[in-house]
Simulated assay, not measured.
Amino acid sequence: MFHFATRKIIEILQDINLSIPKGSRVGFVGETGSGKSTLVDIVMGLLQPTEGSISVDNVLVNQKNMSAWQQHIAHVPQDIFLRDSSIAENIAFGVPREDIDMLRVRDAAHQAQIAETIEGWKDGYQTVVGERGVRLSGGQRQRIGIARALYRNADVIVFDEATSALDSKTEEAVMEAIGCLSQNLTVLMIAHRHSTLRVCTEVIQVKNGEITSAGSYRNFINNTSQNARCEP
């Protein structure tokens, strides 16, 4: 479980008190500049709070153990960087070719719901993706990004508006893959489109550096609809 107890974080976030249970799916939503990305950057150890503390399983996260904590986190951005090499090398990104564990590659691909597609290609996991993955569709690139995160055996996966550039049908396929991930994984999602949040167990709305609401996806949608009806 992560726990935040902060009064101020680098002059952007204030009075944040948040706990995230292991295995939960938490979505962060808010307008550009609201502070949602800053909050998740704190989780990943990319930024340090000026006041307050962060703990994981009741252990305070500090400069001494920050690197160890980051080893448990994987990040799936909106734009997945793919090298002009094989599917296997892109899933096991950064691992020398001779050290790639193909069992882990296949397992990660299955969890990311792309194994059937890969194994249907002539060269399978040795298929070369082309420069920046030009031979793959947007949805395939995103699922390769998910498989890459899973190959790391991360405990926490952060999706940073990972489906915002996809069309609705492709987003649906990627969200299905996310929904099928192990319940032992903690998933954090920064989202722009509200539909992306439907797999979340909790949706946290951030506005002007503060958490303005936290609850289920259904409550979030109901509140959003009600506020929209009240606007002149």
Rank of each mutant, 00 (worst) to 15 (best):
F81G: 05
S24C: 03
D15P: 06
V56N: 05
S55K: 12
S37H: 04
P77R: 14
P21Q: 09
A109E: 08
I10F: 00
L13N: 11
I91R: 10
K8G: 06
I73T: 07
A88G: 01
I16T: 06
V26C: 07
I42N: 10
Q78E: 03
M102Y: 12
L103Q: 15
S55C: 11
H72Y: 02
W69A: 01
L39P: 09
A74N: 10
K8F: 04
I87D: 05
T32G: 04
R104Q: 08
Q63I: 03
I16R: 07
Q63H: 11
R97I: 05
V40A: 06
R97H: 08
V76P: 09
N62T: 14
I91L: 05
H75A: 02
D41K: 11
D57A: 04
I9N: 14
A68T: 11
P49C: 11
L39K: 09
I73S: 03
I42D: 05
I100G: 00
I73A: 03
S19K: 14
Q71Y: 02
K22M: 01
L60H: 09
T38D: 01
T6G: 07
A109L: 14
L47I: 07
L103N: 14
D79R: 13
I73Q: 06
I91P: 01
G27T: 12
S24Y: 09
I10W: 00
Q70S: 07
A5G: 13
H75L: 10
A92W: 08
V76L: 11
S19P: 07
G27A: 13
D41L: 00
I91G: 02
D84W: 09
D79I: 08
K8S: 14
H3W: 07
W69V: 07
I12P: 07
I12L: 08
E51Q: 10
I42T: 13
I91F: 01
E31R: 15
D15N: 15
W69T: 02
A88N: 01
P49K: 10
S85N: 15
E89V: 11
A5F: 08
R106T: 00
R83Q: 09
D84Q: 14
A88Q: 06
V95F: 06
K22C: 00
M66V: 05
S85C: 10
Q48C: 04
L18H: 15
L47S: 09
V76H: 10
T38H: 01
V59H: 07
I54A: 06
E89A: 15
E31A: 10
I42Q: 11
L13Y: 14
